[in-house]
Design a binder for these strands. Structure first.
Length: 278
DNA sequence: GCGACAG
DNA sequence: ATCTTGTCGC
């Protein structure tokens, strides 16, 4: 009998996945490979991409995978692709890419086939790059499969290599005073795995930026900051908004149910920050 | 038993 | 990821 440890995924599959991550990891390039990356104002950079998946509420299988391309530095949407997909793989911490990356790779292939002039020069990915238990998060995975420069942007700190969201970490967060301020995430291995970044002036919670592929950490942080009108970098934010909207237009709107007995309720809002706002 | 667990 | 309102501040 197959032992199912994580999310109903047999140990044997997890072991295959780990081997795949290890093999692909050897191909990650963690330095700047493009001319525009070394330019003070990124001159030469014209198109930035973002990807995200949104999920159908009561459905663990259906989602919308979105790829958007924005102009740089204007950050106006030039292209969007929203695709309803059926997910076959559950979410297993540390193996996010095996759930999401196939659909994002497909979206990029559609763009290459139909509008090659709009292929982005860099891709922002919702999730980590090398800041990962095995140094190969979803941003690295997509970078290798597409051969594009990729930047990992996570909203929460993944506690790997001794990194902890503890009192010291929160102390350092409070020292980030202005948009663009950051501090390195140095693991026990004495390796810098990523940077905590205050993405703009009015945002307390940092982003966790790490290298995905074909970009240096310094460039990844500088470019992430320059793409933030709000807390979340505009390419990822637009992909998130448009994937949600696509679901709502396509499947949503449960046709105004009958006026149910209305009663006042007290709900404790969580720390919803301003990233939802336009 | 407790905490972690990208999305 | 998703469930979810009002409210405070500029």
């Amino acid at each position: 009998m197959a032992e199912e440890a994580e999310g109903g995924v047999p140990e044997e599959i997890l072991s295959l996945w780990e081997r795949e991550q290890a093999q692909l990891k050897a191909r990650v390039v963690d330095r700047d490979t493009e001319e525009w990356q070394r330019e003070p104002a990124f001159s030469g950079l014209r198109r930035v991409g973002g990807v995200d998946l949104s999920f159908v509420k009561g459905d663990c299988a259906r989602a919308c995978a979105s790829l958007v391309v924005l102009s740089y530095p204007e950050l106006e949407v030039l292209y969007e692709d929203n695709q309803l997909v059926s997910l076959s793989t559950p979410y297993v911490p540390g193996f996010l890419a095996f759930r999401e990356v196939p659909f994002l790779r497909d979206a990029m292939q559609r763009l290459r086939d139909t509008k090659p002039s709009l292929v982005p020069q860099v891709l922002f990915v919702d999730g980590n790059g090398v800041l990962h238990p095995r140094g190969f998060g979803v941003a690295c995975h997509l970078g290798i499969l597409t051969d594009l420069p990729c930047i990992g942007v996570a909203k929460k700190l993944l506690q790997v290599d001794g990194l902890e969201n503890n009192a010291l970490h929160r102390e350092r967060m409070q020292l980030l005073h202005a948009g663009g301020d950051s501090f390195p995430l140095m693991g026990e291995s004495r390796t810098v795995l990523g940077m905590a970044l205050r993405s703009h002036d009015r945002s307390t919670n940092p982003l966790y930026v790490s290298v995905g592929h074909k970009v240096s950490l310094q460039t990844a942080v500088r470019l992430t900051h320059s793409c933030c009108r709000f807390r979340i970098p505009e390419p990822v934010r637009q992909a998130d908004i448009r994937s949600r909207e696509h679901i709502r237009r396509t499947l949503g709107l449960p046709a105004a149910p009958e006026p149910a007995p209305k009663r006042s309720q007290k709900v404790h809002p969580k720390g919803n920050l301003e990233e939802t706002l336009d």
